[in-house]
Design a protein around this nucleic acid. Structure first.
Lengths: 232, 232
DNA sequence: CGCTGCGTTGAGCTTCTTCAACGATCGTGG
DNA sequence: CCACGATCGTTGAAGAAGCTCAACGCAGCG
């Protein structure tokens, strides 16, 4: 039992949310945290479920998504190691507003609602981090809403690719870390449409695709498409 | 000066965020808060502006929105008395993710970033309220994303109307408190499309429109349309 | 070897937007 | 008091964007 807690505490220390916490505090947190494991495709929670706590990814990735009545999926987030999810239900005290599913073998730390609220109240630094994380998510959501409502699919793809280029230190060769289908769902479209647009970009010399590898050839053009000042 | 502060303190006490605060605390808050007035159509802040603080509506209404490069508008929120806005920029420390404009003569209390962060850190109750508010907004955004990505316009309108019915205590006569154009922008479409759908609903006996007054006649049908199990 | 999941391509169609015109309402100034 | 312009809402016709459905290729894996 002792050993398990120190292991957990070590994991907790990795999370941005908990950096700067004293070892004693980490031990306290570890005492109320549980480690949970999921297989690829396994559901973590479903929209509407009662939210009794929140999660932080320690290994693998989760997708947070909504389903339409016809089964179409809209991905809201893809979270990897260090990122928390399911907090909305904790603070707002109701059900989960979306579903979560492991995209690959995944491991997450779970902390119950009451325990976490207690932690927060005693820890102003933690509070501010949490507020800042929720704010960041609001910003991301606002961006997604803008995309869905005001931009066409080529623009969205262009924005996504430019973001990926930036994230990978401007190397023009990008490794897509999700499948085409998932990317389509993240961009609010379907695989067929996404595929057509990739082809169109390639036909116009904007990029070259090769499996999960995409080489960007014309960044200025991509920027023009992203902001809507050029069409293909 | 003294008088102004007590006036302000009285206003502050009305805000859900500050209910339960001691008179002394309210005075302290009032000392760092400013009252700002806006005319209909006046901009409060623009997307990208540096966010040095946040606002709480005390009179009138604001819309929070994004603009496309062609000038199309997507409304993210409409806020009335008691509701805070612009907090994202405070906690995340960057710029405003969207623009804000007064929809009518409006009055808002402004609190600077540093002051508010100080307040928060000394006041766990305030913290939790703030977390809960941000969470609620994330939930609302998730709903909007679902609408935009997974539902057609008739569904969105149906959902909106059902929500309004519920809000107005189930009287089937609804008073729309925003213009058609604004409603279109809130639902992620344009006035022409919205108008057509209202006509279609009316032609099928689902509702009767009369200016800003809408009388719902077939709630079950509206529910069916909202969830996508019926089309017109 | 066949199966299954994933990606691609084509054809047709639905939905929504665009563009244009028109009617109604309201506030203003003559 | 009326005329005027501005704003808003409505309606029609045409067009574009993206979705559905179906077929096929390809790779990985039992």
């Amino acid at each position: 039992m002792r050993k398990m807690n120190t292991e957990l505490a070590a994991k907790l220390a990795q999370f941005p949310l908990f950096t700067g916490q004293s070892p004693e505090m980490l031990d306290k947190i570890a005492a109320v945290a549980q480690l949970r494991r999921y297989q690829r495709g396994q559901s973590v929670f479903c929209e509407g479920d009662a939210g009794n706590g929140f999660y932080m990814v320690s290994k693998g990735r989760v997708k947070i998504f909504k389903l339409s009545s016809e089964g179409k999926e809209q991905i809201l987030h893809v979270f990897g190691p260090g990122e928390p999810f399911g907090e909305v239900a904790v603070f707002e005290g109701r059900s989960f507003p979306a579903s979560a599913e492991a995209m690959e073998a995944m491991e997450a730390v779970f902390i119950g609602r009451a325990d976490f609220i207690e932690l927060i109240q005693k820890n102003p630094g933690l509070t501010l981090k949490m507020l800042s994380m929720l704010s960041l998510r609001l910003r991301i959501f606002a961006h997604l809403i803008e995309d869905l409502s005001l931009k066409d699919v080529p623009s969205r793809l262009a924005r996504y690719l430019l973001f990926a280029v930036e994230k990978q230190k401007n190397s023009q060769k990008i490794e897509l870390d999700i499948t085409r289908g998932q990317l389509a769902s993240l961009l609010g479209t379907i695989p067929e449409t996404l595929s057509r647009i990739f082809s169109r970009f390639q036909a116009n010399g904007v990029l070259i695709t090769n499996g999960n590898e995409v080489t960007i050839q014309d960044i200025p053009m991509l920027e023009a498409i992203a902001e809507g000042s050029a069409k293909l």
